[in-house]
Computed example of a mutant assay.
Amino acid sequence: MSFEAEVIPLFIGGVLVVSSFELIVGCVLLKNKKSACKKFVLHVITMLIGFTFLIRSIFANWLNVKFAIASISNSTNIGLFGIFWCVSVMLIVSCIQECLKKQIDEIV
């Protein structure tokens, strides 16, 4: 794909900055809930792994990544992004459930 030269480092840098901010704020807010904090950290890690596959697929030419068959590699990268994104979402939902466990138990 064609992009302006500034887009690629801004996208990669933006993902890293937002993820770092998310990690710091999340850990501060969850400091008293160790188990939820661990799940939150795993959420950020799996999300970043997923973004790595997405970035590799979208910006392969700029990153000088050479594929034997680009269409297969891109399809695999998009699939792996989806899997890691799904795991990331399940972890954050589990983290939210754990934080709300007391309120959920009171309702039931």
Rank of each mutant, 00 (worst) to 15 (best):
V65H: 07
P9A: 02
E6A: 15
K101H: 10
C95V: 01
V93F: 15
R56F: 14
L48F: 13
A36D: 02
N74A: 07
V15K: 05
K102C: 00
L16C: 11
I8E: 07
N64W: 06
I107V: 14
A70I: 11
Q103H: 09
I49A: 05
K39G: 15
S88E: 01
L91M: 11
V17K: 04
S20H: 11
S71W: 13
E6N: 14
M90F: 14
V44P: 01
R56C: 14
I83H: 02
W62V: 12
K66G: 02
V7G: 08
L10P: 06
I8A: 05
S57G: 13
L100P: 07
M1P: 05
T46N: 09
I83P: 06
I45Q: 04
M47T: 15
K102N: 06
N64H: 14
L23K: 08
A5Y: 06
I96R: 03
I96C: 08
G82P: 04
I78S: 00
M47D: 14
I104E: 08
P9V: 08
G79Q: 06
V65F: 13
E4P: 13
M47Y: 15
G14P: 09
I78D: 05
T52M: 09
L29M: 01
F84N: 00
V15W: 06
R56D: 12
I78M: 02
V89A: 12
T76P: 02
N74K: 13
I104A: 06
I58N: 00
D105T: 04
N32F: 04
V17C: 02
D105I: 07
A5K: 08
C86I: 11
E98A: 10
L16N: 08
I55F: 00
S88M: 00
G82M: 02
V18N: 07
K33I: 09
S2W: 12
I49N: 02
F51Q: 10
S20T: 15
I58L: 09
I49T: 03
A60W: 09
I49E: 00
L91Q: 02
M90L: 14
V18I: 15
K101W: 07
I58C: 03
V89T: 10
L23N: 05
I107K: 04
S73I: 04
K102T: 07
G79K: 08
E106K: 03
Q103A: 05
H43G: 06
G13N: 01
E106T: 03
V87H: 11
I107H: 00
I24E: 03
T76E: 02
K39R: 15
N74R: 11
I104C: 04
F51E: 08
M1H: 03
G79Y: 09
E6V: 15
E98L: 12
K101S: 14
A70T: 10
D105P: 03
E98M: 13
N77H: 14
V28N: 00
I55A: 10
K66A: 09
W85A: 10
V18A: 11
I72G: 08
M47I: 07
L16D: 04
V17W: 07
V28K: 03
V108P: 00
G14R: 09
L23A: 12
K38R: 14
L29Y: 05
N74T: 02
F40T: 02
I49L: 07
S94D: 07
A60F: 14
V15Y: 09
Q97W: 10
L29E: 01
G50S: 05
A36N: 01
